[in-house]
Every structure is written in C-alpha cells, then in structure tokens.
Design a protein around this nucleic acid. Structure first.
Lengths: 350, 350
DNA sequence: TTGAAAGCGATACCAC
DNA sequence: GTGGTATCGCTTTCAA
C-alpha cells in the first residue's frame, strides 16, 4: 500500500508496474494485452489500491454514467413507487441516479432543464403534472436523451410514458356498478388540471353508459390531490347530501380515498356495507388501509421501469424515432368495495 | 447563436470575444477584470449560449458538487421523509443529490462504500439499520466526509445522527398508562436488530416504572417492520389472548400499527374504545389512518436536515472533531389512543 | 489587468 | 502488443 493520503492515479500504477499509462488503461478496460502485462498491472493496481477517477474518465469519454430523475414530489407514494422501480431498473447498469424534486413548481422545472446543459448527466427522466407550452419549449430544446412521464401533446418529438386515467376512472365506475352500486359520487381533484379533466371524462362516460344520470350525480372537487383536501371534500359531500343518497364514492386517487374512509367513519357509515370506496393509483397505502382499499392501478412502477428502459435505449441509439408508451390501468379489488373480496382481481381494457 | 450541435467551450467564447480563455474563466468566476473585458466576455457568452461543463470543472477544481445519499429503502415513509428534508436542505446550495437504495443489504452497502473511492461525490450520508463491524470497518476507511444516520458505537470517529427509540417507546407506554390503559401489549420488530432491542428496553422500563408486570405482558414479535408482518403479528396476539385481556397495543413503528388497526377491526374491536393503538415514527401515514394514529415521532425530517447540515459543515472544515447528535422523540397524540384528542400534544424528555 | 501555458486523470490514436 | 502523446474543458499559477 502506498501513502493513502494521495490518491493513486494511472501514472502511479504505471510507474510501479514499470509500464506505460496507456498499457495500464488498456488492461483495466479489458483490451488485449499479454498475460505478463496483465499480471504486472493488476498487481500494481492492488498494491496501490488504485481506483479510476469518475470525473476524469467522464471528461475524456464524454459519458457521465449518471441519469437525472426529476419528480414533482419525492413524498408522494405514487412517485416514490416510480423512483423505486427506476432505481431498480438501473441497478444492473452502471448508471447512478441524480434526484431532483421540483415540488411541481414550473420555475423549478425550468431551472432544472437549464442545468441539464452543464452536462452532468447522460439522460433525464422528467415526471411532470402539467406540461404547458413554456415547459414544452424547454423540453424540446434539450440536447440530452430524455423521457417524459406524463401527458405530452401528440406532436412533441420526445419519448413519453403515460397512463390512461380516463379509462382508469371508467374501470372504477364499472366496478362499482357491477357490484350493485347506483348512487355513485365522484371526488375529483382540481378540474383545471389534466388529471382532473380526464378523471371527470371517464366518470361521466361510464355513468352514462351504465344508464345513470351524471347531471344529478354528487360531485365534489378536492382542493388538491392530498389526504387532507380529500377528507374535507368528502365531509362537504356528506354534509350537503341526504343520508343514504350515496352508496359509493369514486376517488381521484388513494390519498383522497383515505380521506373518504375517514370522513365516512366520522359519520358512522360502514365501508363497504353502507358506502363503497374506490381509489386510484393503487399505492402501497391501499393495502394498508382499514378496510383495505380497492383501487385502480395506474402502473406507477411499470411506468417508471418503462421510462428507464426507453431512456437507456435512446442513449444507446439517439436516432430512434420518438416513442410513446401508454400503461393501461388495472382494477385491483379489495374490501372497501366488496366485503369479502378476493385479494386481487384482474381487469383492464377489453 | 452558434451551431447548436457542438457545445461551446471556453475556447469558443474566448475566440468570439477576442480574449484569452483565462480571462473568460476569470470573468465567469467573478474575479477582478476591467468593465470593458467583462462586457465583451458576457456578450460572447450569451451569443454562444455557453454553459460550463460540470465534469471538466470538477476535474480541475477537485470538487464534484455532488453528495451521495444512501438509504435502506426508498419506499419506506420514514426514509422518504428523511430524503425529502435532505433534498430541501440542499436546495439553496449548489449540491446535487445522488441517490442510492441499499435495500438494507450489507453487500450493497459495502459495494456502495467502495464506489465512493471513484470520487464522484464530495460527501456521503449513509442511513443504515444495522451497523456491524464489517460495515464499520469500511466506514472508517472512507476518505470523503460522511455522516451516518443510525446507531453508531461510541468510539467511532464519524459524524452521527441518531434518535433515542428507547426513550420513544417509554413515551408511548407512559402515554398509554396516563390515559388509563393497564393491559398493554407490545408488537416489536425482530429482537435481533438494534431498533428491536431498544424498543424492548424502553417498553420494559416504562412498564416497570408504572408498576405493571412486564413478565406477563403480551409481547409479539413481528417478522419485520412492515405492514403485513405487523398485521400477522397482531392476529397471532389476538388469537392467543382472551378477549379483553388487552386494552392497548404499543407498536414498533407506524406500519405495524396500521396492521394492528386492521387486525383489531377484523375482530370487531373498536379503536380506541376497546383497544388503544400507538405507533412510532410519526410518518405521514399516521395522520391518514382511520382512526388517525397516535405516534411517537422519531424526527425523521429533523434527522435528515441535521445530517445534511453536519455534512456541509464537515466539507467546509474537515478537521472538525466527530460530532454526535441525538434527536429526541416526541409524542404526537391522535385519536387512536384518545377518542376526542387534541390534534397534537407536545411531549418529550423531561 | 491580461495572456500563455501547465496541469487535473483518463482515453485513444499513432507509431513502433 | 506496447509506449508516447494529444486531448477532453476548465482553473490557476506565472510573467508580462
């Protein structure tokens, strides 16, 4: 072992082995070399405790071995699930993951896209709730491979992973109808967001197809997609409707659904006996609820894994045409809609 | 604007401005320069759209502007809270966060510590459940500034952030006793882990001090700290004890407590009327439970923020003596122990 | 104040 | 197969 206070470099190793730095580099990168050379180099490497410097290598090789992941909120279970599966997808590659939380703030997102130009990552996965024209402009200007998770307009030439929440909400309502519910309420998120609109559309379509009147259906808007806002929305809903007027609540996501479970309990209503509740996203929370929450999976993990795959493919071949992947929602039945439910019941698009 | 396909470098800017690269570098780094020089450079910079290359700068400056964060499980709400607050702490610095999930696997942790030697980060925050001798050996060998979140032996000269879960469990039991409970059960995690031992110790101490018999107290071990394992453990507990034999359950964490809420509901037992339940960690989940879960906060966010601060300080001054910070647990009362509880009730060490 | 030039540590090209 | 060396993009002496 050498003096540990100064980090050994290729030159250190080369000198000790009595060979050139070029040879050391070659051996270390698995290029052809004589057995004699190999053993001398490897010996010197272990004796010096040499480890290549990531940045020097990157500077030369024009490759950082880093990918950036930007999520709206590192605290939200849906995004956590995505992160997790992206992390898992990268485990057998030599990419590191640089994490950015944008707090769903446009300014932060724009900033982030700007910093990409410093070239500290080989690619970017951007998860964004609302992709407006401003953001879009920056995204298309990006010079590094990138994948957007979220709803991108059709013509944008950027790899995109999305999920069909309109269809997801239809699955939810169809399930409620199939299990005998007729007085179905919707707790939607803000209607001025893309997710809000598509959920509303799905609800409306499914209700109509079931021969139920959407016009008179109780619909309440939650201030946002959080538990607290959901709880308050359901309280309002229950306050303004007659007892028994509602026998099911379709919620825009699991957090809101948890609020619903709570609000119903406060009123002494039993789930699912009096009122069925279904959520959306099928986060880890759903299985942990009391009672366990039926939910429509929006495939967060699958979306994450797909995004990772698309990104790696594009890095491999930047000339690939832009690709668009849609993850189909899937119904997961638990006890909040069916008392003695099977653990899981497959569902999905026809 | 230049040809966008080739990234402008300092040389590009220098040529356009008709000055030397050294001058451009100086201006860009805010070193003294004539106003004339400044305007010429800045003009050329905007015209070329120049942005410095992160890796080239790092290679030269011996500073990566990156910190590594290794957590046992990016899916666990406690670690998510830590991540979040670390991320927030770094927001106003120019450090990026490289995320690693070790899956609580020793091999993965050792691997990770090894990769640190590639020098791609300026510092490391390592959160680990069980710091054994093997891991410890590697940690002390680390040549970069690092902070460990978790229980480190006293003599280890590494910055350490910890929480006193023994005291935390005492707070939980004292609260149960203070609210009239006497037949208190403990659902502990694996007793062969550090957290498992300290929770048991705290439980035992508090019970004894309250004049309750620990020997006969119902204690069940959960296979791990997850919801499913907790649910099963509580089912076992209820199966082997007489109805009414238990009027409170202290749980080793919130996930287990959620399992308890569910298991009690399955038996038709009311919370808190029949049985009080208290969790630990005070994760986001606690407030979302039905009923909302009393919990002992182990200050995940605070621990994260502290770790970040310690790390930045050490990077600033590597000669600082090793520091050890303990975050005191804090009781948070919700409805699972007290029917009509105040939202939060301050508590803590004497 | 400004410019020339020497590295930082690794890779890859070009002779031998 | 091996060694010398230019180069990646930037910072930082050292002179002028």
């Amino acid at each position: 072992m050498q003096d540990p206070s100064v980090r050994p470099t290729l030159a250190t190793v080369a000198k000790l082995a009595g060979v050139s730095v070029a040879s050391v580099s070659r051996v270390l990168n698995g290029m052809p070399a004589s057995p004699e050379m190999e053993s001398r180099v490897m010996d010197a490497v272990t004796r010096t405790g040499y480890v290549p410097d990531a940045f020097a290598r990157s500077l030369r090789a024009r490759r950082t071995n880093q990918l950036a992941l930007a999520v709206a909120d590192v605290g939200n279970p849906v995004y956590v699930a995505m992160m997790r599966s992206i992390d898992a997808s990268l485990r057998n590659t030599d990419y590191r993951l640089v994490l950015h939380s944008t707090e769903a703030d446009l300014g932060a997102e724009l900033d982030l896209l700007g910093t990409m130009r410093h070239g500290y990552v080989d690619g970017l996965i951007l998860q964004s709730l609302r992709v407006g024209s401003e953001l879009l402009a920056e995204i298309t200007k990006l010079t590094i491979p990138s994948v957007v998770i979220g709803l991108l307009p059709e013509q944008v030439p950027v790899d995109n992973v999305r999920t069909d929440t309109r269809q997801g909400m239809r699955l939810a309502v169809e399930h409620l109808v199939a299990t005998g519910r007729r007085r179905i309420a919707l707790i939607n998120g803000p209607i001025d967001t893309i997710p809000g609109v598509s959920r509303w559309t799905g609800f409306s379509e499914a209700m109509t197809e079931a021969g139920l009147d959407v016009e008179t259906a109780p619909v309440e808007q939650s201030a946002d997609f959080t538990h607290v806002a959901g709880l308050e929305a359901v309280r309002r809903l229950l306050a303004r409707t007659k007892p028994g007027a509602i026998d099911a609540i379709a919620c825009s996501n699991d957090l809101i659904a948890m609020g619903a479970l709570r609000a119903l309990a406060e009123r002494g209503l039993r789930v699912p006996d009096d009122v069925a509740v279904i959520g959306m996203d099928d986060t880890d929370l759903a299985a942990m609820c009391n009672p366990p929450l039926s939910s429509v999976s929006t495939g967060a993990a699958e979306r994450g894994a797909t995004a990772a795959r698309l990104l790696l493919e594009r890095i491999e071949d930047p000339d690939l045409p832009p690709r668009r992947t849609t993850v189909q929602p899937r119904l997961v039945v638990r006890e909040s809609t069916v008392g003695n439910a099977a653990q899981t019941e497959p569902g999905g698009a026809p």
